[in-house]
Simulated assay, not measured.
Amino acid sequence: MGRYRLTARLGEGGMGTVYLGVSPGARRVAVKVVREELAQDPSFRRRFAREVDAVRRVGGFHTAPVVDAGTDDARPWLVTEYIPGPSLHEVLRSHGALPATTVRTLALGLAEALEGIHACGIIHRDLKPSNVVVSDAGPRVIDFGIARAADGTALTRTDFVVGTRGFLAPEQLTGGPLTPAVDAYAFGMVLCHAGGAAPFPEGTVLEEALRTLPADLSAVVGDCLRQDPAGRPTPAEILQRLSRSGEKAPGDWLPGAVRTLVARHQAATVPAPGA
């Protein structure tokens, strides 16, 4: 795809298929190739090109930078840095709820990622455990901003909502104005899942469910899950509040079982000599 050699299939989503690729300089990359039916929609292609231009400006420690794209190709594609590691979804499926120190580091990393994304005028719209990669150095947010490119196409489909139910803010479900506050709501839900507070059984009182989280995290998450988007904190406010708690994130943020899972992902994607 372009000048990138595809070596393995990493996954598939509503926008297309993601492959592990190798650059001409032998660097591993993630290559997302748009689905054929979307590629044939001229309005989608224009939106996709605009979003690629926007996400290329996003930097920071906790995202996967965009390094290349082919927006004019028959099947548009996007290349990002490849982060070796499982998704948070995979971690939670195999390990279960994470310890408080890990959830705290996750919260700080996700808030810092959203701060950088929002600073570029981008709303993620689909923050969820499968869009968070767990790496040695901390969490990395992927697929930021690209969900918006599908909006016009999505609206032609019956009952289609951009995003993932269970992580959507109320205004995303009711057709209200979308602001960066939708990402704050999703951030809160991601932490609920990571800390074992979610999914919520029917009839659960939110304040009771959040007691499984440390007190300062519980307060922040509770504010993120407010029905009124105006009452949700910004990423900068989240960072300030968690920094005031005085507890520092550990250098080794992963429990042993999860670190082993990360190491397996790293080993599985090391190219063979001469490959």
Rank of each mutant, 00 (worst) to 15 (best):
L127I: 05
A119M: 04
N131V: 00
H89I: 00
E112I: 07
H95F: 11
L108K: 07
A30C: 10
K32N: 05
P84N: 13
H95T: 09
L127Q: 08
G25I: 00
A100K: 02
G70F: 08
R75N: 11
S130M: 00
S23R: 15
S87K: 02
G25M: 06
V31W: 01
F48T: 03
D68L: 10
C120W: 01
S130N: 03
V33A: 04
R27L: 09
K128W: 00
E115I: 01
G116Q: 11
H89T: 04
E115N: 08
I117V: 15
A69Q: 09
F44S: 11
S23Q: 14
H62L: 00
L110V: 05
L88E: 12
T101Y: 14
R27V: 03
E51G: 10
Q40M: 09
A26H: 14
S130A: 12
H62C: 11
P99M: 09
R45Y: 06
F44D: 11
L98S: 10
H89M: 10
R93E: 15
G60L: 09
G59Q: 09
S87T: 15
H118Q: 06
L114T: 08
W77Q: 07
L88S: 14
I83E: 15
E112D: 15
P42K: 07
G109T: 11
D53K: 14
Q40D: 10
G109I: 07
W77H: 15
G85Q: 14
K128H: 04
L98V: 03
F48N: 04
D72Q: 13
F61H: 13
V79Y: 06
G25T: 15
F61V: 05
R50P: 05
R93G: 09
A49K: 14
D73T: 09
E81P: 02
S43W: 02
P65I: 03
D73W: 05
P65F: 03
V52M: 10
A111D: 13
V22N: 14
H95S: 13
R75T: 08
P84F: 07
A74K: 07
L78Y: 06
R56I: 01
E90H: 10
L108C: 13
S43N: 06
V103L: 11
D126V: 04
E81C: 03
E36K: 09
I83A: 15
I122P: 01
A119T: 04
L127H: 04
P76A: 05
F44I: 03
H89N: 11
G25L: 11
V132D: 00
T101P: 02
H118C: 05
R27S: 13
R46A: 13
R47P: 01
A26D: 14
R45N: 07
T63M: 04
S23F: 10
R93W: 03
R57L: 14
D72V: 05
